[in-house]
Design a protein around this nucleic acid. Sequence first.
DNA 1: TTGCAAAGCGGAACACGGTTCCGTATCGTC
DNA 2: GACGATACGGAACCGTGTTCCGCTTTGCAA
Lengths: 230, 230
Amino acid sequence: MAETNGTGPATPEGPAASDGEATADGSATPDGQAAPAGPAAPDPPARARRRDAQRNQRSLLDAAAAVFVTSGVDAPVRDIAARAGVGIGTIYRHFPTRADLVVAVYRHQIDACAEAGPVLLAAGPTAHAALGRWVDLFADFLVTKHGLAAAMQGDAPGFEALHASFLERLLPVCADLLDAATAAGEIQAGVDAYQLMRGVGNLCAGAESDPRYDARRLVAVLVAGLAVPH
Amino acid sequence: MAETNGTGPATPEGPAASDGEATADGSATPDGQAAPAGPAAPDPPARARRRDAQRNQRSLLDAAAAVFVTSGVDAPVRDIAARAGVGIGTIYRHFPTRADLVVAVYRHQIDACAEAGPVLLAAGPTAHAALGRWVDLFADFLVTKHGLAAAMQGDAPGFEALHASFLERLLPVCADLLDAATAAGEIQAGVDAYQLMRGVGNLCAGAESDPRYDARRLVAVLVAGLAVPH
DNA sequence: TTGCAAAGCGGAACACGGTTCCGTATCGTC
DNA sequence: GACGATACGGAACCGTGTTCCGCTTTGCAA
Protein backbone atom coordinates (compact mmCIF):
# COMPACT_ATOMS: atom_id res chain seq x y z
CA MET A 1 0.00 0.00 0.00
CA ALA A 2 1.70 3.19 1.16
CA GLU A 3 2.83 3.78 -2.35
CA THR A 4 3.35 7.43 -2.00
CA ASN A 5 6.98 7.12 -2.91
CA GLY A 6 7.31 8.91 -6.17
CA THR A 7 10.77 9.83 -7.31
CA GLY A 8 11.84 10.47 -3.79
CA PRO A 9 9.94 12.65 -1.42
CA ALA A 10 7.59 10.31 0.41
CA THR A 11 4.53 11.89 1.90
CA PRO A 12 5.27 13.46 5.22
CA GLU A 13 1.76 12.89 6.47
CA GLY A 14 0.29 9.46 7.05
CA PRO A 15 -3.11 9.17 5.38
CA ALA A 16 -5.83 10.54 7.57
CA ALA A 17 -6.85 7.05 8.55
CA SER A 18 -5.02 6.45 11.80
CA ASP A 19 -5.56 9.72 13.57
CA GLY A 20 -9.29 9.61 13.71
CA GLU A 21 -10.08 13.25 13.81
CA ALA A 22 -11.68 14.63 10.73
CA THR A 23 -15.25 14.83 11.92
CA ALA A 24 -14.40 14.38 15.54
CA ASP A 25 -15.94 17.76 15.98
CA GLY A 26 -19.56 17.81 15.01
CA SER A 27 -18.98 20.74 12.70
CA ALA A 28 -17.74 18.54 9.91
CA THR A 29 -21.17 17.28 9.07
CA PRO A 30 -21.44 17.71 5.35
CA ASP A 31 -25.03 18.76 5.24
CA GLY A 32 -24.89 22.30 6.51
CA GLN A 33 -26.71 21.48 9.72
CA ALA A 34 -23.59 21.99 11.78
CA ALA A 35 -24.25 25.67 12.44
CA PRO A 36 -25.16 25.80 16.16
CA ALA A 37 -21.76 24.95 17.49
CA GLY A 38 -22.09 27.51 20.24
CA PRO A 39 -23.21 26.17 23.65
CA ALA A 40 -26.26 28.41 23.58
CA ALA A 41 -28.24 26.68 20.86
CA PRO A 42 -31.53 28.56 20.53
CA ASP A 43 -33.45 25.50 19.38
CA PRO A 44 -33.17 22.44 21.60
CA PRO A 45 -36.08 20.55 19.99
CA ALA A 46 -34.11 18.52 17.50
CA ARG A 47 -32.67 15.35 18.92
CA ALA A 48 -28.95 14.84 18.83
CA ARG A 49 -27.44 12.65 16.15
CA ARG A 50 -27.71 9.02 17.01
CA ARG A 51 -24.66 7.14 18.17
CA ASP A 52 -24.68 4.67 15.34
CA ALA A 53 -24.89 7.51 12.87
CA GLN A 54 -21.80 9.11 14.36
CA ARG A 55 -20.03 5.81 14.42
CA ASN A 56 -20.85 5.14 10.80
CA GLN A 57 -19.72 8.53 9.68
CA ARG A 58 -16.43 7.96 11.38
CA SER A 59 -16.10 4.54 9.81
CA LEU A 60 -16.80 6.01 6.43
CA LEU A 61 -14.18 8.68 6.80
CA ASP A 62 -11.58 6.16 7.84
CA ALA A 63 -12.53 3.79 5.07
CA ALA A 64 -12.55 6.54 2.49
CA ALA A 65 -9.14 7.76 3.56
CA ALA A 66 -7.74 4.28 3.19
CA VAL A 67 -9.41 3.57 -0.12
CA PHE A 68 -8.43 6.93 -1.56
CA VAL A 69 -4.81 6.07 -0.92
CA THR A 70 -4.97 2.85 -2.86
CA SER A 71 -7.57 3.59 -5.50
CA GLY A 72 -7.61 7.34 -5.75
CA VAL A 73 -10.45 9.70 -4.99
CA ASP A 74 -12.46 8.14 -7.79
CA ALA A 75 -12.71 4.83 -6.02
CA PRO A 76 -16.09 3.12 -6.43
CA VAL A 77 -18.61 4.13 -3.83
CA ARG A 78 -19.30 0.50 -3.09
CA ASP A 79 -15.69 -0.14 -2.23
CA ILE A 80 -15.74 2.56 0.39
CA ALA A 81 -19.02 1.42 1.81
CA ALA A 82 -17.82 -2.17 1.93
CA ARG A 83 -14.61 -1.29 3.69
CA ALA A 84 -16.55 0.76 6.19
CA GLY A 85 -18.91 -2.14 6.69
CA VAL A 86 -21.99 -0.11 5.85
CA GLY A 87 -24.55 -0.15 3.09
CA ILE A 88 -24.55 2.04 0.03
CA GLY A 89 -27.43 4.08 1.31
CA THR A 90 -25.49 5.06 4.37
CA ILE A 91 -22.65 6.60 2.47
CA TYR A 92 -25.05 8.69 0.46
CA ARG A 93 -26.90 9.79 3.54
CA HIS A 94 -23.75 11.04 5.22
CA PHE A 95 -22.04 12.36 2.14
CA PRO A 96 -24.53 13.21 -0.58
CA THR A 97 -21.80 13.89 -3.10
CA ARG A 98 -18.33 12.53 -3.47
CA ALA A 99 -17.03 16.02 -2.98
CA ASP A 100 -18.47 16.09 0.53
CA LEU A 101 -16.58 12.96 1.37
CA VAL A 102 -13.34 14.14 -0.14
CA VAL A 103 -13.53 17.45 1.62
CA ALA A 104 -14.29 15.80 4.93
CA VAL A 105 -11.41 13.39 4.58
CA TYR A 106 -8.88 16.05 3.74
CA ARG A 107 -10.29 18.87 5.81
CA HIS A 108 -7.52 18.93 8.35
CA GLN A 109 -4.88 18.94 5.67
CA ILE A 110 -6.57 21.82 3.97
CA ASP A 111 -6.67 23.64 7.24
CA ALA A 112 -2.99 23.03 7.78
CA CYS A 113 -2.26 24.41 4.37
CA ALA A 114 -4.37 27.45 5.04
CA GLU A 115 -2.66 28.12 8.32
CA ALA A 116 0.75 27.86 6.75
CA GLY A 117 0.07 30.87 4.56
CA PRO A 118 0.50 33.66 7.09
CA VAL A 119 3.37 31.83 8.73
CA LEU A 120 5.30 31.59 5.50
CA LEU A 121 4.57 35.17 4.68
CA ALA A 122 6.02 36.29 7.99
CA ALA A 123 9.03 34.02 7.71
CA GLY A 124 9.98 34.31 4.07
CA PRO A 125 12.59 36.74 2.87
CA THR A 126 10.14 38.13 0.34
CA ALA A 127 6.45 37.80 -0.29
CA HIS A 128 7.15 36.22 -3.63
CA ALA A 129 9.32 33.60 -2.01
CA ALA A 130 6.63 32.92 0.56
CA LEU A 131 4.08 32.58 -2.19
CA GLY A 132 6.34 30.12 -3.94
CA ARG A 133 6.74 28.05 -0.84
CA TRP A 134 3.06 28.06 -0.03
CA VAL A 135 2.20 27.02 -3.54
CA ASP A 136 4.67 24.17 -3.20
CA LEU A 137 2.82 23.06 -0.13
CA PHE A 138 -0.46 23.13 -1.96
CA ALA A 139 1.00 21.27 -4.90
CA ASP A 140 2.43 18.59 -2.64
CA PHE A 141 -0.95 18.10 -1.12
CA LEU A 142 -2.58 17.67 -4.50
CA VAL A 143 0.07 15.48 -6.04
CA THR A 144 0.14 12.99 -3.23
CA LYS A 145 -3.59 12.38 -3.42
CA HIS A 146 -4.27 10.16 -6.36
CA GLY A 147 -6.48 11.91 -8.78
CA LEU A 148 -7.42 14.71 -6.46
CA ALA A 149 -6.11 17.37 -8.76
CA ALA A 150 -7.78 15.78 -11.72
CA ALA A 151 -11.02 15.57 -9.82
CA MET A 152 -10.95 19.28 -9.20
CA GLN A 153 -11.28 20.02 -12.87
CA GLY A 154 -14.21 17.96 -13.89
CA ASP A 155 -17.33 19.64 -15.11
CA ALA A 156 -19.39 17.26 -13.08
CA PRO A 157 -21.67 19.16 -10.73
CA GLY A 158 -20.38 17.23 -7.77
CA PHE A 159 -16.87 18.40 -8.28
CA GLU A 160 -17.97 21.96 -8.54
CA ALA A 161 -18.71 21.62 -4.87
CA LEU A 162 -15.34 20.11 -4.17
CA HIS A 163 -13.73 22.96 -5.95
CA ALA A 164 -15.77 25.45 -4.03
CA SER A 165 -14.97 23.91 -0.66
CA PHE A 166 -11.27 23.95 -1.26
CA LEU A 167 -11.37 27.45 -2.57
CA GLU A 168 -13.46 28.81 0.23
CA ARG A 169 -10.75 27.92 2.66
CA LEU A 170 -7.61 28.48 0.65
CA LEU A 171 -8.46 31.30 -1.67
CA PRO A 172 -8.18 34.05 0.94
CA VAL A 173 -4.82 32.70 2.03
CA CYS A 174 -3.51 32.66 -1.48
CA ALA A 175 -4.93 36.09 -2.13
CA ASP A 176 -3.11 37.52 0.86
CA LEU A 177 0.18 36.15 -0.34
CA LEU A 178 -0.45 37.39 -3.82
CA ASP A 179 -1.45 40.83 -2.61
CA ALA A 180 1.61 41.09 -0.44
CA ALA A 181 3.87 40.20 -3.32
CA THR A 182 2.10 42.61 -5.59
CA ALA A 183 2.27 45.38 -3.02
CA ALA A 184 5.98 44.78 -2.69
CA GLY A 185 6.31 45.21 -6.42
CA GLU A 186 7.69 41.73 -6.78
CA ILE A 187 5.11 40.37 -9.16
CA GLN A 188 3.02 41.89 -11.86
CA ALA A 189 -0.71 41.96 -11.47
CA GLY A 190 -2.92 40.24 -13.95
CA VAL A 191 -3.34 36.84 -12.37
CA ASP A 192 -5.65 36.66 -9.42
CA ALA A 193 -5.60 34.11 -6.64
CA TYR A 194 -8.35 32.08 -8.17
CA GLN A 195 -6.56 31.65 -11.42
CA LEU A 196 -3.29 30.88 -9.75
CA MET A 197 -4.80 28.17 -7.60
CA ARG A 198 -6.69 26.74 -10.51
CA GLY A 199 -3.53 26.74 -12.55
CA VAL A 200 -1.53 25.04 -9.85
CA GLY A 201 -4.27 22.50 -9.39
CA ASN A 202 -4.31 21.79 -13.08
CA LEU A 203 -0.57 21.42 -13.28
CA CYS A 204 -0.71 18.79 -10.58
CA ALA A 205 -3.27 16.64 -12.32
CA GLY A 206 -2.05 13.20 -13.21
CA ALA A 207 1.39 13.96 -11.90
CA GLU A 208 1.68 10.90 -9.73
CA SER A 209 1.38 8.42 -12.55
CA ASP A 210 3.91 9.90 -14.92
CA PRO A 211 7.56 9.72 -13.99
CA ARG A 212 8.53 11.99 -16.86
CA TYR A 213 6.40 14.78 -15.51
CA ASP A 214 7.41 16.85 -12.53
CA ALA A 215 4.47 18.94 -11.49
CA ARG A 216 6.38 20.66 -8.73
CA ARG A 217 8.94 21.98 -11.14
CA LEU A 218 6.32 23.36 -13.48
CA VAL A 219 4.51 24.95 -10.60
CA ALA A 220 7.74 26.64 -9.67
CA VAL A 221 8.14 27.86 -13.24
CA LEU A 222 4.62 29.20 -13.18
CA VAL A 223 5.26 31.15 -10.01
CA ALA A 224 8.52 32.40 -11.43
CA GLY A 225 6.60 33.65 -14.41
CA LEU A 226 4.62 35.95 -12.16
CA ALA A 227 7.69 37.96 -11.30
CA VAL A 228 8.02 41.40 -12.80
CA PRO A 229 10.37 41.30 -15.77
CA HIS A 230 12.96 43.57 -14.24
CA MET B 1 -5.73 26.24 -36.67
CA ALA B 2 -8.77 28.03 -37.80
CA GLU B 3 -10.45 28.72 -34.50
CA THR B 4 -8.10 30.85 -32.55
CA ASN B 5 -10.95 33.03 -31.44
CA GLY B 6 -10.98 34.19 -27.87
CA THR B 7 -13.91 33.69 -25.63
CA GLY B 8 -16.30 33.87 -28.51
CA PRO B 9 -17.87 30.45 -28.72
CA ALA B 10 -19.17 29.16 -32.00
CA THR B 11 -16.74 26.86 -33.64
CA PRO B 12 -15.57 28.68 -36.69
CA GLU B 13 -13.90 25.69 -38.16
CA GLY B 14 -16.46 23.45 -39.70
CA PRO B 15 -15.81 20.25 -37.83
CA ALA B 16 -13.56 18.04 -39.85
CA ALA B 17 -16.65 17.05 -41.71
CA SER B 18 -16.52 19.04 -44.89
CA ASP B 19 -12.91 18.67 -45.90
CA GLY B 20 -12.86 14.98 -46.10
CA GLU B 21 -9.33 14.19 -45.28
CA ALA B 22 -8.58 12.63 -41.97
CA THR B 23 -8.32 9.00 -42.87
CA ALA B 24 -8.57 9.62 -46.55
CA ASP B 25 -5.12 8.19 -46.78
CA GLY B 26 -4.96 4.58 -45.81
CA SER B 27 -2.25 5.24 -43.27
CA ALA B 28 -4.70 6.63 -40.78
CA THR B 29 -6.05 3.23 -39.94
CA PRO B 30 -6.26 3.30 -36.20
CA ASP B 31 -5.25 -0.19 -35.43
CA GLY B 32 -1.52 -0.12 -35.25
CA GLN B 33 -1.17 -2.23 -38.33
CA ALA B 34 0.52 0.68 -40.04
CA ALA B 35 3.94 -0.34 -38.80
CA PRO B 36 5.63 -1.44 -42.02
CA ALA B 37 5.24 2.01 -43.49
CA GLY B 38 7.92 1.23 -46.00
CA PRO B 39 6.49 1.56 -49.51
CA ALA B 40 7.63 -1.94 -50.36
CA ALA B 41 4.87 -3.89 -48.69
CA PRO B 42 5.84 -7.52 -49.12
CA ASP B 43 2.27 -8.80 -49.13
CA PRO B 44 -0.08 -7.52 -51.85
CA PRO B 45 -2.59 -10.36 -51.38
CA ALA B 46 -4.97 -8.62 -49.00
CA ARG B 47 -8.06 -7.23 -50.66
CA ALA B 48 -8.74 -3.53 -50.55
CA ARG B 49 -11.11 -2.13 -47.93
CA ARG B 50 -14.73 -2.43 -48.90
CA ARG B 51 -16.63 0.61 -50.05
CA ASP B 52 -19.16 0.53 -47.26
CA ALA B 53 -16.37 0.30 -44.73
CA GLN B 54 -14.76 3.42 -46.11
CA ARG B 55 -18.08 5.17 -46.20
CA ASN B 56 -18.82 4.26 -42.62
CA GLN B 57 -15.46 5.38 -41.40
CA ARG B 58 -16.04 8.71 -43.06
CA SER B 59 -19.50 8.98 -41.53
CA LEU B 60 -18.08 8.22 -38.13
CA LEU B 61 -15.46 10.90 -38.41
CA ASP B 62 -18.02 13.46 -39.44
CA ALA B 63 -20.40 12.42 -36.72
CA ALA B 64 -17.69 12.39 -34.10
CA ALA B 65 -16.51 15.83 -35.07
CA ALA B 66 -20.02 17.17 -34.75
CA VAL B 67 -20.75 15.43 -31.48
CA PHE B 68 -17.43 16.44 -29.96
CA VAL B 69 -18.34 20.06 -30.53
CA THR B 70 -21.60 19.80 -28.67
CA SER B 71 -20.87 17.16 -26.06
CA GLY B 72 -17.12 17.16 -25.74
CA VAL B 73 -14.71 14.38 -26.52
CA ASP B 74 -16.29 12.30 -23.78
CA ALA B 75 -19.56 12.03 -25.61
CA PRO B 76 -21.22 8.63 -25.31
CA VAL B 77 -20.12 6.19 -27.95
CA ARG B 78 -23.73 5.44 -28.74
CA ASP B 79 -24.40 9.05 -29.56
CA ILE B 80 -21.67 9.11 -32.12
CA ALA B 81 -22.74 5.82 -33.63
CA ALA B 82 -26.34 6.98 -33.79
CA ARG B 83 -25.47 10.23 -35.47
CA ALA B 84 -23.35 8.40 -37.98
CA GLY B 85 -26.21 6.02 -38.60
CA VAL B 86 -24.16 2.96 -37.80
CA GLY B 87 -24.21 0.33 -35.11
CA ILE B 88 -22.10 0.29 -32.01
CA GLY B 89 -20.00 -2.52 -33.30
CA THR B 90 -18.97 -0.51 -36.31
CA ILE B 91 -17.51 2.32 -34.32
CA TYR B 92 -15.42 -0.10 -32.31
CA ARG B 93 -14.25 -1.86 -35.41
CA HIS B 94 -12.99 1.32 -36.99
CA PHE B 95 -11.76 2.99 -33.83
CA PRO B 96 -10.94 0.47 -31.15
CA THR B 97 -10.34 3.15 -28.56
CA ARG B 98 -11.74 6.60 -28.14
CA ALA B 99 -8.28 7.96 -28.54
CA ASP B 100 -8.12 6.59 -32.07
CA LEU B 101 -11.25 8.45 -32.94
CA VAL B 102 -10.16 11.67 -31.34
CA VAL B 103 -6.81 11.58 -33.02
CA ALA B 104 -8.37 10.86 -36.38
CA VAL B 105 -10.83 13.71 -36.03
CA TYR B 106 -8.23 16.26 -35.09
CA ARG B 107 -5.35 14.95 -37.12
CA HIS B 108 -5.30 17.77 -39.61
CA GLN B 109 -5.38 20.36 -36.89
CA ILE B 110 -2.50 18.69 -35.14
CA ASP B 111 -0.60 18.70 -38.37
CA ALA B 112 -1.27 22.38 -38.86
CA CYS B 113 0.00 23.06 -35.39
CA ALA B 114 3.11 21.03 -36.02
CA GLU B 115 3.82 22.81 -39.26
CA ALA B 116 3.46 26.18 -37.61
CA GLY B 117 6.44 25.53 -35.38
CA PRO B 118 9.27 26.07 -37.82
CA VAL B 119 7.42 28.94 -39.44
CA LEU B 120 7.08 30.79 -36.18
CA LEU B 121 10.66 30.11 -35.29
CA ALA B 122 11.82 31.65 -38.53
CA ALA B 123 9.50 34.61 -38.24
CA GLY B 124 9.68 35.47 -34.57
CA PRO B 125 12.04 38.10 -33.25
CA THR B 126 13.41 35.62 -30.75
CA ALA B 127 13.14 31.93 -30.23
CA HIS B 128 11.47 32.51 -26.89
CA ALA B 129 8.85 34.67 -28.52
CA ALA B 130 8.28 32.04 -31.16
CA LEU B 131 7.92 29.41 -28.49
CA GLY B 132 5.40 31.58 -26.75
CA ARG B 133 3.39 32.00 -29.87
CA TRP B 134 3.48 28.36 -30.76
CA VAL B 135 2.39 27.39 -27.30
CA ASP B 136 -0.51 29.80 -27.65
CA LEU B 137 -1.51 28.01 -30.79
CA PHE B 138 -1.42 24.69 -29.04
CA ALA B 139 -3.36 26.04 -26.10
CA ASP B 140 -6.02 27.46 -28.39
CA PHE B 141 -6.41 24.10 -29.99
CA LEU B 142 -6.89 22.40 -26.66
CA VAL B 143 -9.16 24.96 -25.11
CA THR B 144 -11.59 25.08 -27.99
CA LYS B 145 -12.12 21.32 -27.91
CA HIS B 146 -14.41 20.54 -25.05
CA GLY B 147 -12.67 18.34 -22.62
CA LEU B 148 -9.80 17.47 -24.88
CA ALA B 149 -7.21 18.78 -22.50
CA ALA B 150 -8.83 17.00 -19.61
CA ALA B 151 -8.94 13.81 -21.59
CA MET B 152 -5.21 13.96 -22.12
CA GLN B 153 -4.56 13.55 -18.43
CA GLY B 154 -6.60 10.54 -17.53
CA ASP B 155 -4.87 7.44 -16.37
CA ALA B 156 -7.19 5.39 -18.48
CA PRO B 157 -5.16 3.24 -20.84
CA GLY B 158 -7.07 4.54 -23.81
CA PHE B 159 -5.99 8.06 -23.20
CA GLU B 160 -2.41 7.01 -22.89
CA ALA B 161 -2.66 6.35 -26.59
CA LEU B 162 -4.22 9.71 -27.24
CA HIS B 163 -1.44 11.33 -25.37
CA ALA B 164 1.13 9.37 -27.28
CA SER B 165 -0.35 10.22 -30.65
CA PHE B 166 -0.41 13.91 -29.99
CA LEU B 167 3.05 13.86 -28.59
CA GLU B 168 4.53 11.85 -31.39
CA ARG B 169 3.65 14.59 -33.79
CA LEU B 170 4.09 17.70 -31.70
CA LEU B 171 6.89 16.87 -29.33
CA PRO B 172 9.69 17.25 -31.87
CA VAL B 173 8.30 20.60 -32.91
CA CYS B 174 8.16 21.83 -29.37
CA ALA B 175 11.59 20.45 -28.67
CA ASP B 176 13.05 22.37 -31.59
CA LEU B 177 11.60 25.62 -30.35
CA LEU B 178 12.77 24.91 -26.85
CA ASP B 179 16.25 24.01 -28.02
CA ALA B 180 16.51 27.13 -30.11
CA ALA B 181 15.51 29.31 -27.19
CA THR B 182 17.92 27.53 -24.91
CA ALA B 183 20.73 27.81 -27.42
CA ALA B 184 20.06 31.51 -27.68
CA GLY B 185 20.41 31.76 -23.94
CA GLU B 186 16.90 33.08 -23.61
CA ILE B 187 15.55 30.41 -21.32
CA GLN B 188 17.03 28.28 -18.64
CA ALA B 189 17.19 24.58 -19.11
CA GLY B 190 15.44 22.27 -16.72
CA VAL B 191 12.10 21.83 -18.39
CA ASP B 192 12.02 19.59 -21.40
CA ALA B 193 9.55 19.65 -24.23
CA TYR B 194 7.52 16.83 -22.83
CA GLN B 195 6.98 18.53 -19.53
CA LEU B 196 6.20 21.83 -21.15
CA MET B 197 3.56 20.33 -23.38
CA ARG B 198 2.12 18.35 -20.56
CA GLY B 199 2.00 21.44 -18.44
CA VAL B 200 0.31 23.48 -21.13
CA GLY B 201 -2.14 20.70 -21.70
CA ASN B 202 -2.94 20.56 -18.05
CA LEU B 203 -3.39 24.29 -17.77
CA CYS B 204 -5.95 24.17 -20.53
CA ALA B 205 -8.09 21.52 -18.91
CA GLY B 206 -11.55 22.65 -18.06
CA ALA B 207 -10.84 26.13 -19.27
CA GLU B 208 -13.86 26.41 -21.52
CA SER B 209 -16.40 26.00 -18.77
CA ASP B 210 -15.04 28.51 -16.30
CA PRO B 211 -15.25 32.18 -17.16
CA ARG B 212 -13.08 33.11 -14.21
CA TYR B 213 -10.22 31.08 -15.53
CA ASP B 214 -8.10 32.22 -18.44
CA ALA B 215 -5.93 29.32 -19.50
CA ARG B 216 -4.18 31.33 -22.16
CA ARG B 217 -2.96 33.85 -19.67
CA LEU B 218 -1.57 31.21 -17.36
CA VAL B 219 0.10 29.51 -20.25
CA ALA B 220 1.76 32.79 -21.06
CA VAL B 221 2.88 33.12 -17.46
CA LEU B 222 4.30 29.64 -17.57
CA VAL B 223 6.30 30.38 -20.69
CA ALA B 224 7.46 33.63 -19.15
CA GLY B 225 8.68 31.64 -16.19
CA LEU B 226 11.05 29.76 -18.44
CA ALA B 227 13.04 32.89 -19.17
CA VAL B 228 16.44 33.23 -17.60
CA PRO B 229 16.25 35.53 -14.57
CA HIS B 230 18.50 38.20 -15.99
C1' DT C 1 -38.48 -2.38 31.96
C1' DT C 2 -41.08 -1.86 28.22
C1' DG C 3 -43.35 0.72 24.38
C1' DC C 4 -42.99 3.58 20.70
C1' DA C 5 -41.87 6.94 17.18
C1' DA C 6 -38.12 8.99 15.02
C1' DA C 7 -33.76 8.27 12.97
C1' DG C 8 -30.97 5.60 10.50
C1' DC C 9 -29.72 1.45 7.87
C1' DG C 10 -29.12 -1.83 3.98
C1' DG C 11 -29.24 -3.23 -0.39
C1' DA C 12 -32.37 -4.26 -4.26
C1' DA C 13 -33.48 -1.93 -8.28
C1' DC C 14 -32.82 1.29 -11.78
C1' DA C 15 -30.11 4.24 -15.02
C1' DC C 16 -26.24 4.78 -18.04
C1' DG C 17 -22.22 4.18 -20.52
C1' DG C 18 -18.40 1.13 -22.24
C1' DT C 19 -17.33 -3.26 -24.49
C1' DT C 20 -17.89 -7.82 -26.54
C1' DC C 21 -19.73 -11.19 -29.60
C1' DC C 22 -21.97 -13.50 -33.15
C1' DG C 23 -25.77 -14.21 -36.51
C1' DT C 24 -26.78 -11.73 -40.61
C1' DA C 25 -26.29 -8.56 -44.54
C1' DT C 26 -23.36 -6.68 -47.98
C1' DC C 27 -19.66 -6.44 -51.17
C1' DG C 28 -16.51 -7.92 -54.70
C1' DT C 29 -15.09 -11.45 -57.49
C1' DC C 30 -15.36 -15.53 -60.35
C1' DG D 1 -25.69 -15.85 -60.29
C1' DA D 2 -22.99 -18.03 -56.70
C1' DC D 3 -19.82 -17.85 -53.11
C1' DG D 4 -16.49 -16.51 -49.66
C1' DA D 5 -14.64 -12.71 -47.32
C1' DT D 6 -15.70 -8.62 -45.11
C1' DA D 7 -18.29 -5.69 -42.43
C1' DC D 8 -22.55 -4.60 -40.01
C1' DG D 9 -25.85 -4.21 -36.14
C1' DG D 10 -27.35 -4.38 -31.81
C1' DA D 11 -28.46 -7.56 -28.02
C1' DA D 12 -26.20 -8.71 -23.97
C1' DC D 13 -23.00 -8.12 -20.31
C1' DC D 14 -20.42 -5.60 -16.88
C1' DG D 15 -19.25 -2.03 -13.70
C1' DT D 16 -20.68 2.24 -11.49
C1' DG D 17 -23.56 5.96 -9.73
C1' DT D 18 -28.02 6.92 -7.55
C1' DT D 19 -32.60 6.31 -5.64
C1' DC D 20 -36.06 4.37 -2.76
C1' DC D 21 -38.42 1.98 0.74
C1' DG D 22 -39.22 -1.75 4.12
C1' DC D 23 -36.80 -3.01 8.24
C1' DT D 24 -33.78 -2.22 12.36
C1' DT D 25 -31.80 0.45 15.93
C1' DT D 26 -31.84 4.00 19.13
C1' DG D 27 -33.23 7.00 22.70
C1' DC D 28 -36.79 8.88 25.28
C1' DA D 29 -40.63 8.31 28.34
C1' DA D 30 -44.06 6.02 30.79
